[in-house]
Nucleic acid binder design. Structure first.
Lengths: 106, 106
DNA sequence: CGCCTGTATCGACAGACATCGAAACAAGAT
DNA sequence: ATCTTGTTTCGATGTCTGTCGATACAGGCG
């Protein structure tokens, strides 16, 4: 990011992912999923901690899924969600560079 | 993030920073500033690359500033902006953990 | 002082988003 | 088949956001 200006396309794709992280409920959902035993959680585990309705949680999960941050699968009665580490790593790397490079560049 | 669920307050603060990154123009602005010679750029350097009006750029810079991602200062005629590396490092660390931990946890 | 350039703020508007209740869909149990 | 529980989709609504033009503010220069 610090080496050369972001292109329009790259910026558009990345902004979609950051937008998915721009809601406190979605951040907490992601954290809940990531920190859940086995690295995955069913929707029923994710409703309790929040004060919003269940359809709203489902909506937020859909946003995370469409942003490519989580995967999901139905197993019998329940639907399970898990974090896609590559996606987060991509964002992390993008943000990490400037801090390091800024010190190097001075 | 993967160790324990994000608290409400932490999620709220982080989501504000991610929200600032959730717009393609703001991402490109940040990248332009970070990659600019000397690590800082004046607004006049930042208007040309975009198809939006100057007030819109000014608005986006304000969003980045209020999110704590960039600093700014007026020097004579021009206003200069620079990236605040600690803020980006904070977000980067948050996103980096799950990827690493996911592999460790299996 | 008045003028010009660079930047920020204001007011307005269209489009996007978070949220809800209701309803649809999926799958197991009776 | 019918019921029940878990989850998603739909439609509506109020709020937020990106954008613009117009305008205000700041500072250098005649």
């Amino acid at each position: 990011m610090v080496r050369e200006p972001l292109g329009e396309e790259a910026a558009a794709e990345l902004s979609r992912m950051f937008k998915a992280l721009s809601d406190p409920i979605r951040l907490r959902l992601l954290s809940l999923i990531a920190s859940h035993e086995g690295g995955e959680a069913c929707v029923c585990d994710l409703i309790g901690p929040f004060d919003v309705s269940q359809p709203t949680i489902s909506h937020h999960l859909k946003v995370l899924r469409e942003a490519g941050l989580v995967g999901s699968e139905r197993r019998g009665t329940w639907v399970y969600y898990w974090v896609l580490p590559e996606a987060l790593a991509k964002l992390s790397a993008l943000l990490q560079t400037p801090a390091v490079a800024a010190k190097a560049t001075g």
